[in-house]
Amino acid sequence: MSTGNPYPKSSATHQSGLSMVELLVAMVIQFILLAAMIYVYSASKQMFTVNEQMARVQENGRHATDALLYDIRMSGYAGCRSMEDITPNIIANSPPTFASFADALTVYEGGTGWTNPTALTRVAGTDVITLQSTRGGGVSLTGNMGTDNANIQITSNPDGLATNDLILISDCSSADLFRATSVSNGSPVTIAHANNANTTNRLSKAYQEDAQILSFDAHTYFVAVDAAGESGLYQYSLNSNSATQLTSGIDDMQLLLAEDTDGDQQPDVYVSADAVIDWEAVIGVRVGLLLQSANGIASASRSFSFDGAEANTGDDMRLRKAFWSYAALRNRIN
């Protein structure tokens, strides 16, 4: 008969909990993993923000550049003849205020000599450019004008001509620039040129049905700051007598003129407006725009070179990118 313990001691070791050392090790591991996750998230968020802001800078740069280059290429366009080939008879009140009507392109170096027609504050040191030309495809007269002060009739109004617009009428041998005092919406469309918006109601001649009516405007591009202190590129229209912001985030605009010094219709030198020797030899414009991001997101401030000089960017920590493009003056190249 056995007299041993009916409940023999188990050989298994019972778990009584984590030691302090084990707990500290586990907490350290968790902290490292959490820190790594936070770092990856922050880096991803920063990269997303940088990419988003740079994409906006690229978009603004393309939009501003496209608008400028289109107007530069079309400057001097007057339908069948260049404005440099015809000297128009100007009867419009408040006409383009250039040295001569043939000056389809005017550049003000650093804004010198330009009278700001708006309440906006131009950014100091930035260039200003004014470009004038007709707009749209033009439309022919429905018939001959009986007299030189008769109303003008056209078949339709595809260019959206309106009262007080500057309008050029031309038959490729003569041209008149006037302001429309009324534009009817009937068929045909009737355009009046009374002397309440013109120096006289008489054109240089009674045009025949081979003449064309074209919308005319002068656009001035300049960099200015808005009420919030943010700079942008503005377009001032002589027709509407108002300025429209084309895009924000423009720090600077610098323009170089391409001169053809040997008559081969190829640019020989690029100079600033105050160094142009012969404006008749200017055949193109090199446009430089310095853009900035909307917010300060750079990791550190840095200097930025633009147009051969150090750009005054301060410590705003914004991303910046320079855009340089070239446009030929198509109506000066044969």
Rank of each mutant, 00 (worst) to 15 (best):
D226R: 11
D171Q: 01
D226M: 06
S237E: 11
F222P: 06
A218D: 02
V225R: 15
A211F: 02
S204M: 09
S187A: 13
L166C: 08
N151A: 13
R179A: 01
M145S: 04
A192P: 01
G232Y: 09
G160M: 03
T220W: 04
G160W: 01
Q245F: 03
E209I: 09
T220H: 07
Q208R: 14
L166I: 09
S240K: 14
R202Q: 14
Q235L: 12
N241Q: 15
S187E: 09
A218Q: 15
L161W: 05
D176V: 01
S240R: 15
N201A: 11
H219Y: 15
I154D: 01
G229E: 12
G138T: 12
Q208E: 09
S231A: 14
Y221P: 07
I169D: 04
Y207G: 07
T163V: 14
S237I: 05
S173V: 14
Y221S: 02
S231N: 12
V183N: 02
V183H: 01
N241M: 09
Y221N: 07
L233C: 03
L168F: 11
D217H: 10
G138Q: 08
D217K: 10
D210Q: 14
L161N: 10
Q245N: 11
D171H: 07
N185E: 08
Q235S: 13
T155I: 11
S242H: 11
S215H: 13
M145I: 04
S184W: 00
G143P: 05
S173K: 12
S140W: 04
A192C: 00
H219F: 15
I167H: 00
V225D: 12
V225C: 01
T200W: 00
S242T: 14
F222S: 09
D176W: 07
A227E: 14
Y207D: 08
I169C: 07
T163N: 12
I191K: 00
D171A: 06
S156W: 05
T220N: 05
A194C: 00
A192E: 00
Q208N: 13
Y207C: 07
S140D: 09
S240L: 13
V223I: 15
I191H: 00
T181N: 01
I191V: 08
T147S: 15
Y234F: 15
A211T: 11
Q153L: 03
H219A: 11
V183Q: 02
G143S: 14
N198M: 06
A228H: 05
Y236L: 06
H219M: 13
A180R: 06
A224W: 08
C172L: 06
A218G: 10
Q153W: 01
A206W: 08
T190K: 06
T200C: 02
N239C: 04
A243W: 11
D226F: 07
A162N: 12
G146M: 07
G138D: 03
Y207H: 09
D176N: 03
T200G: 01
Q153I: 01
S170C: 06
G186T: 05
G186A: 01
F178K: 10
S184E: 00
T155W: 06
D148A: 13
N198K: 10
